[in-house]
């Protein structure tokens, strides 16, 4: 067993208010981990911290599998300017940035890989379409194709299936399963318990504090879910300084 990510007494938040409070634990290489919990539980914040987009208020994240910039991260609402004149193929090819950089050409092999990625998310034939003409589901398929090209050992997905129909969700879950088969580490924030139970062997239930972490069936027991709901208290203006010591 090798460790991909280790959280050491990790506290994350905004304006000193914690969104994730004193989290300890490890994500093993090849884990397919669902992060779940009520709204405001700190799930998205945790992914941002893993990706290196925010700095912890306390403790730290150790990335043992790769550097922060080699982690592939699909945020909840990708801020894409859909009016920009760029087509599907070019946007997907952005996934090659780490290997191509400023001037690197797109070799035949890379081109073939891009077409293959587009095919495996079911967008063949739309390569030349401007991104502004895609539907919500096609957008998400395109972003998954870009993730495929990033070829990252660690992949973070923030509510990737929200507002998608069942066919699109099923297709994209197949991509996730393929990553799992390739021993990549996948951490996904999800709300749909049914999907988590069916496709994710491990789960972390967050409610600012970690409630449970382990095999999905154990984590998603009803007493845990109830406890999580109670623990997400209101954002407290008068909160005192936390005195808990690691």
């Amino acid at each position: 067993m090798t460790i991909a990510l280790r959280f050491k007494d990790l506290t994350l938040g905004y304006d000193r208010h914690p969104a994730v409070h004193h989290l300890d634990g490890v994500v093993e290489t090849g884990d397919l981990l669902a992060v779940c919990g009520p709204n405001g539980a700190g799930k998205s914040t945790l992914l941002k911290a893993i990706a290196g987009a925010i700095q912890p208020l306390g403790g730290h994240v150790e990335r043992l599998a790769c550097a922060a910039r080699d982690i592939a991260y699909l945020p909840q609402a990708a801020e894409i300017d859909r009016s920009f004149p760029i087509n599907v193929f070019d946007l997907v090819a952005m996934g090659f940035w780490r290997s191509a950089g400023l001037f690197g050409g797109l070799s035949r092999a890379k081109e073939a890989r891009a077409f293959e990625a587009i095919a495996s998310v079911g967008l063949t034939g739309l390569e030349d379409r401007p991104i502004g003409t895609l539907s919500g589901g096609q957008m998400q398929r395109m972003l998954f194709a870009r993730l495929l090209l990033q070829d990252a050992p660690v992949i973070l997905l923030d509510e990737p299936f929200t507002a998608l129909d069942s066919k699109t969700t099923a297709d994209l879950l197949e991509v996730v399963a393929r990553w799992h088969g390739e021993k990549r580490t996948v951490v996904a924030v999800l709300h749909d318990d049914e999907i988590i139970r069916r496709c994710f062997p491990k789960a972390l239930l967050l409610a600012r504090e970690p409630v449970a972490w382990g095999a999905t069936e154990e984590v998603l027991r009803s007493e845990n879910l109830l406890r999580a709901r109670r623990m997400v208290e209101a954002f407290d203006r008068e909160a005192h300084e936390c005195e808990r010591v690691a």
Partner: peptide, 22 residues
């Protein structure tokens, strides 16, 4: 020289920030 990062910064600034400091 700036073409790629400029295009990426305009279309999807968050993605560029996540893979590079350019």
């Amino acid at each position: 020289a700036l073409y790629r990062p400029l295009v990426m910064e305009t279309v999807d600034p968050f993605f560029l920030a996540s893979v590079s400091r350019a």
